[in-house]
């Protein structure tokens, strides 16, 4: 690790932003076909905090993410980033979806450098950051490969590099490891935690996986469906970096059990 360039200087030193939301509500459509997807919910995320949203499909997790970044307009309520009310999409953000959404006609490096081209940032400086991220994410040597030449895990790593290369203040991840195999998922989870510990971006992490939520987060927000609401907030007090095998911590199963019990109470699970 010592041989590596320190990431905080290589990829910039912008700290995470705070995110506050009040009465956040989203209704899609209007009239009788209107669908009340979310809220009202309140959020208060500290700078550099790692927060997970967990809940069944259709509980408004993804909607929450799109609202706090200004990518979708709110139906009601307000969002503030670093205390400034949000009125347009913020650009100090990196986004990772379940699909890697890489451009198939660009190499791994050029996919990441799309940020530089579109934002019109300095090429050499951004390339240095991209190189540092590639090194950190185990992508060295894959720079000139096209997405179809990469494994699913590597594609998602490139997608993470693209989300971080411009040194954003927040990282939004919508089930980023959902499409990966269990082995890749464990590895990439660890790598993301290490990267986050170093850069301290504010992360809003959406997942279906109790293990991912407990394994990564400072705080887990459990959500319920129709309309999406936050039903419980669980602070995860486990030391970092957390081990790949979370069972080493007895507290892990206590946390996992708590989320599981909420799911059962909500009727997410129906066991006979």
């Amino acid at each position: 690790m010592n041989a590596l360039q320190p990431l905080r200087t290589a990829t910039g030193s912008t700290r995470g932003a705070s995110i506050t939301a009040h009465n956040l509500t989203k209704v899609y459509g209007s009239g009788p076909s209107a669908f009340h997807a979310l809220g009202p919910i309140d959020l208060d995320i500290a700078p550099g905090e790692f927060v997970s949203l967990i809940g069944p499909s259709g509980c408004g997790k993804s909607t929450t993410m799109l609202l706090v970044s200004g990518l979708e307009p709110v139906s009601d309520g307000s969002v503030a980033v670093d205390g400034r009310p949000l009125t347009a999409p913020i650009s100090e953000v990196g986004i990772v979806f379940q699909d890697h959404l890489l451009l198939e006609f660009r190499t791994a490096m050029n996919n990441v450098m799309l940020q530089q081209q579109i934002r019109g940032l300095g090429r050499a400086e951004m390339r240095a950051r991209a190189d540092a991220l590639f090194e950190r994410l185990g992508l060295t040597g894959a720079e000139d490969r096209y997405p179809w030449q990469l494994s699913g895990g590597m594609r998602q790593r490139v997608s993470i590099a693209r989300a971080l290369v411009h040194d954003p203040t927040m990282l939004l991840m919508d089930e980023p490891f959902g499409a990966l195999d269990a082995i890749s998922r464990t590895q990439i989870r660890h790598d993301l935690e290490m990267l986050w510990m170093e850069t301290k971006k504010t992360v809003l992490f959406i997942t279906h996986s109790i293990e991912e939520a407990v394994g990564l987060s400072d705080r887990v927000l459990v959500m319920s469906t129709s309309p999406g609401r936050i039903v419980e907030e669980i602070r995860i007090d486990l030391p970092r970096p957390r081990p790949a095998h979370l069972g080493e911590y007895p507290e892990f199963s206590t946390y996992a059990r708590r989320i599981f019990d909420i799911f059962e109470k909500l009727g997410v699970y129906r066991f006979k």
Binding site: S69, L71, P89, S91, G94, F97, L101, L114
Partner: peptide, 14 residues
């Protein structure tokens, strides 16, 4: 083009 990609490019300010 995947509509989700539009979110990413919009966040870049394209």
């Amino acid at each position: 083009v995947d509509p989700k990609l539009a979110y990413i490019t919009r966040s870049m300010g394209a």
